[in-house]
């Protein structure tokens, strides 16, 4: 049963690069992970822990050196319009208006113009940007740009949303606001969400499960279930409990990294 319902499955996935000097560098050491359909999973860890590599492997932008990545039981061989990635730098097209950007994915799918327009407008309504459809990206704030990118993704109704530190460039207020927006959108449309962040509070506010990753080599340190109902009150004690849990865990990571560094000297 549990095997059938897992949406994304990583088995013994491994990724290494060869550096310019010909040295083999391990970005992700063999790991297993299963993500259920409709689940919201956060990948958290310090830089170099392989979280971005891992999401790129799942989204099909990179291929594993060993092991397998499957979505819906099929191996991931490349990017797929059913699994949309949202980037920190938005990736909006500056020559297109807000509406034009949201239309892009629908046009790529070959959806007739009239229907595409209706769907794009409905999605822009959903993210609260109906009033800005004729603006160009350079006229928008960072938070609005990311909402356009989210609308562009949701318009094609993907079953998986991959988000690679999508709110990292935004100020704290906008970030909280967009986190709440994202949760609302997730509850309304229920895609599977894989969300990479280095912000521990963000991970606790959003994730049903938090995958803690550690560097040298990139690996999964621990998987934490966050049993709080959404939306989560960031100032409550139970939020603080998970916060303490994560900080303790990463404190350990720091110490181990320190020791490893000492040994290598």
């Amino acid at each position: 049963m549990s095997i059938q319902t897992s949406k994304i499955k990583l088995s013994a996935v491994e990724k290494h690069f060869t550096s310019a000097r010909g040295e083999r560098q391990v970005a992700v050491s063999p790991l297993d992970l299963e993500i259920q359909s409709g689940e919201f999973v956060c990948l958290v860890g310090p830089s170099g822990c392989g979280k971005t590599t891992l999401i790129n492997l799942m989204a099909g932008f990179e291929q594993p050196s060993a092991g397998s990545v499957t979505i819906d039981g099929r191996p991931v061989s490349g990017p797929d319009p059913d699994h949309i990635m949202i980037f920190q730098d938005y990736g909006l097209y500056p020559w297109r208006t807000v509406l034009g950007n949201v239309l892009f994915g629908l046009q790529a799918k070959g959806i007739p113009a009239g229907e595409a327009r209706d769907r794009a407008l409905a999605t822009l309504e959903l993210v609260g940007l109906r009033h800005a459809i004729d603006k160009h990206p350079h006229e928008l704030s960072g938070g609005m740009k990311q909402r356009v990118a989210i609308a562009r993704a949701l318009a094609v109704e993907p079953s998986v949303l991959f988000m690679d530190e999508p709110f990292a460039a935004l100020d704290a207020f906008t970030r909280y606001h967009l986190q709440d927006e994202l949760l609302r959108l997730w509850q309304e449309t229920r895609p599977t969400v894989v969300f990479v962040t280095h912000d521990l509070d963000e991970a606790i506010a959003l994730g049903q499960r938090i995958v803690l990753m550690a560097p040298n080599p990139g690996r999964i340190q621990r998987v934490l279930e966050v049993s709080l109902p959404h939306p989560r009150e960031r100032t409550r004690d139970d939020f603080a409990f998970f916060r303490r849990e994560l900080f303790t865990e990463f404190h350990l990571v720091h110490q181990m990294a320190l020791q490893e560094a000492e040994y290598s000297i």
Binding site: P79, H83, I84, W95, F104, Q107
Partner: peptide, 24 residues
């Protein structure tokens, strides 16, 4: 990143060329 987004949405090579590369 522009090409990555186009590839993700499944834009064909013709659409990628005419509607992403040329305007970019």
């Amino acid at each position: 990143l522009y090409l990555k987004v186009a590839g993700n949405f499944g834009a064909g090579s013709r659409m990628t060329f005419l509607r992403v590369i040329v305007p970019a």
